[in-house]
Simulated assay, not measured.
Amino acid sequence: MTSSHYTKQFLCLSSAVGVCLPAYGALFAPDIASNQSMEWAAGNWAVGGTTQPDNPDLVGNDSAFINDGKTVNVNASVPKVDLINIENINNNGSTVNVNSGGTLATNRLDLSERNASGTLNILTGGSFTVSDRTLVGFRGGSGGGFININGGSFLNDATGSREIIVGRSGNITLNSGSFTATGSSASHTLQFGGGLAGATSGTGAGGTLSININGGTFNAGGGQVLMSSLTTVNVTGSNAMITMDRLSLDTASRAATINFDFDSTGISTIQGNDFLRLSNAGLNIDGTDYAGGSDVFVLFSSTDLQSISSNVTITGFDPGEYTAVLTQDQGGSEDVFLTVTAIPEPSVVSFALAALGFGFIRRRH
């Protein structure tokens, strides 16, 4: 059965249910058993295919908490709420799946509190919009917050300078689809990683953030991208389109690490308009899977390379097959690029030398 309440106190269901809403909003309480999922479809919440008509529509000042190892599946458009919090009670991680046809929107997104994980999966045909910041792994939580984009779209539609993803432990993976958080002015800073503004410990304190870009479109253009020193960007393969305008990794607090992991044909470029600052960045380039020929691969494009990285590691390219040289081209193209040169097979070299010698002998006669 279901129930709905309107009070002026904060209401939270028991761990047997795992969903609660805020003081001033509506409480929806489907009779959901352990490991069952709750589903939004056709304008109502349903459990096991059974519509729950007593649940009120959520409104703009409501908050939704999904706890206790529960799963919420969103298959239709859900009214926008003020806060979505995925797991803040115990050690059982909870999940929200935004499936094909599902749209979910909130002002704030909180993922993972205490030692439980909170996971947001955005699948093909699904969309998620947040109009403020996303906070991951807060209040000392070690479980971590996870955003996985597999064909769907994640949009931060706020404007001006702002925190995009902050907190203690976060992981964003873009396999396909899109991640969008843009500015409309060069002065608009877009913060990835680090603590919530004003927090030095506990809730919102800074921690690790991993941004894994394997495909799709990652768009952080239009403003100035900042990353904390505990942020790692992993660019894998050559199937992504990546924009990070005015990437500034130029202070000790912005000493982020960017890893480029080549696939068999190459690597995706981090494209940027205007300046690029890399003086405190760590750059790691892995060519283990590369199987192509000689080529030049642009890792960062810019129009003004203001500072370069001195912390560069190149591994994985078989020294018997390739040479790989990184160029940070200040005063030239203003790009950062890797020149990969294939070393000819010994038999090819021997044949070429033999042909050269034969030609020399013929000319002597």
Rank of each mutant, 00 (worst) to 15 (best):
V336Q: 03
M227G: 02
S178G: 13
S184T: 15
N284A: 06
V78T: 06
G183I: 07
D82H: 10
A324L: 07
R362C: 08
A64P: 00
S4I: 06
S14R: 03
L21S: 11
L299V: 04
L83I: 10
L338K: 01
G195A: 15
A205P: 11
I164F: 14
I267N: 11
G60T: 12
T134N: 05
F179E: 05
N311D: 11
G18P: 00
L83E: 08
M227A: 15
Y290I: 08
R363P: 04
L13P: 00
A16G: 13
N284M: 00
L278S: 08
I172C: 00
I343Y: 10
T236C: 03
D335K: 02
T106K: 03
G287P: 03
N311I: 06
I285P: 04
F10W: 09
C12D: 01
I89L: 10
E39R: 00
L299G: 01
G215E: 14
N121Q: 11
R133C: 06
F28N: 01
N107W: 10
T134F: 09
S14Q: 03
S117R: 12
S112N: 04
L230S: 13
F358M: 13
P79S: 12
D110Q: 14
G194S: 09
S307K: 07
A29S: 09
Q191C: 07
L123F: 14
G48C: 02
A181I: 02
D250V: 07
G93I: 07
A199H: 12
S301H: 05
D62G: 03
G292E: 09
G221V: 01
S100E: 12
L283G: 08
L155F: 12
S238N: 12
A220T: 09
S34R: 07
V17Q: 02
G93M: 07
G293C: 07
S253K: 15
G102L: 05
R108Q: 11
V298E: 13
V130T: 14
S210G: 09
G272I: 09
G177Q: 07
R162W: 13
R133N: 08
Q224E: 15
F128L: 12
S264L: 09
M244Q: 05
A252V: 15
T71I: 14
S347R: 13
A64M: 12
T134D: 06
T180F: 03
I164T: 08
N273K: 14
A64S: 09
G141Y: 08
K80S: 14
S37L: 02
S248C: 06
S112I: 01
T103Y: 13
N92L: 12
E321G: 03
G272A: 13
V74D: 02
A29V: 12
S178F: 08
S310K: 11
V130F: 14
V166S: 07
S100G: 13
F28P: 00
I314H: 07
